[in-house]
């Protein structure tokens, strides 16, 4: 396809990005691995001795670690369940003939563009607040005791906020995929005697399979790193009830200034993220050939 001259030019043009990304990836990564083997606390200046696996042992045996892993799984799993199921239903709904489809679409997508700190604060104060929040008002109007969402069900509340932010993403992608379905396929199925449920199960769902996988994998990457929503609403509490892995590492690193333990946690987070990433890369790689 190309001549030697253009190949040389191509290499020259690619190299800045490659060098930058290589540096961006390797330097902090190696530093994190290195720090994770040191006793290194910014509040206790010293000569930072090598301690081997001590930071890892300390981080992993901390009871907060198990809680954080569990919370991370619940957070990721809960949001995925809500957004994927909700996204499929919403996409099916939005794909039907109606008036003002464009406007509804715009309304449904909007939460995705709201910055995480704003959505967290809005939900925390305007909705979840038991005294002045909207849900509190509604409960009182119905004669019920207002529920203090963020202290009594902190993780569930955060799952709610994050789902509100990511439901638009899932909906938009699934809707796009649904609209690329050849309508003749559905008509052929109808001619073959498939009712709407059968058409959904045997035609639409398999067609959506790839989009659903993409939604799950991409959201997982972002959901593993949820930070701002917790930072703004519960600060991980009460206790460690809503602390996920990212927030736990943040606490170790920037609140206790324990570089060594924080880095050990970072390495663990990287390993976990890589397991997800491998699946994601396979998916996208396959798509690249198509």
């Amino acid at each position: 396809m190309a001549t030697k001259a253009s190949r040389a030019a191509a290499r020259a043009m690619i190299s800045p990005s490659v060098i930058l990304l290589l540096g961006w990836m390797l330097i902090p990564l190696l530093m994190t691995i290195y720090f994770s083997t040191l006793r290194y606390n910014l509040l206790m200046p010293g000569n930072n001795p090598f301690v081997g696996w001590e930071n890892y042992t300390y981080f992993v045996t901390d009871p907060a670690f198990a809680t954080a892993i569990w919370n991370t799984l619940l957070l990721v799993g809960g949001v995925l369940l809500i957004t994927v199921v909700g996204g499929i239903l919403l996409a099916l709904l939005l794909d039907m003939p109606m008036w003002g489809q464009g406007v509804v679409r715009i309304m449904v997508i909007a939460p995705f563009f709201v910055m995480p700190t704003v959505s967290a604060l809005v939900w925390k104060n305007m909705f979840f607040n038991p005294v002045n929040g909207l849900f509190g008002h509604i409960a009182k109007a119905l004669g019920l005791t207002p529920f203090d969402f963020l202290s009594q069900a902190p993780l569930a509340s955060i799952i709610g906020i994050v789902s509100w932010q990511w439901l638009p993403f899932a909906t938009l992608i699934l809707l796009t995929a649904l609209q690329s379905l050849d309508s003749e396929q559905l008509e052929a199925a109808e001619m073959d005697g498939a009712d709407p449920v059968n058409r959904f199960v045997f035609i639409m769902l398999p067609h959506l399979a790839r989009a659903i996988t993409v939604v799950i994998l991409i959201q997982t990457i972002f959901l593993l790193s949820i930070f701002a929503e917790i930072f703004v609403t519960t600060s991980g509490g009460p206790g460690d009830a809503s602390t996920n892995l990212t927030y736990l590492i943040y606490q170790e690193s920037l609140l206790s200034f324990d570089v060594g333990t924080g880095s050990a946690g970072g390495v663990i987070a990287i390993i976990l993220a890589n397991i997800v990433a491998i699946f994601l890369m396979r998916m996208i790689g396959k798509n690249l050939d198509a």
């Binding site: 790193s225 990212t246 590492i249 970072g266 993220a273 890369m281």
Partner: peptide, 21 residues
């Protein structure tokens, strides 16, 4: 694919080095 994989690095994993740099 490799470029994309750098995006998968969780930010918290490299928080400390970036902060210290």
């Amino acid at each position: 694919m490799w470029m994309l994989s750098t995006k998968m690095l969780p930010p918290v994993g490299v928080l400390m080095p970036i902060y210290l740099i």
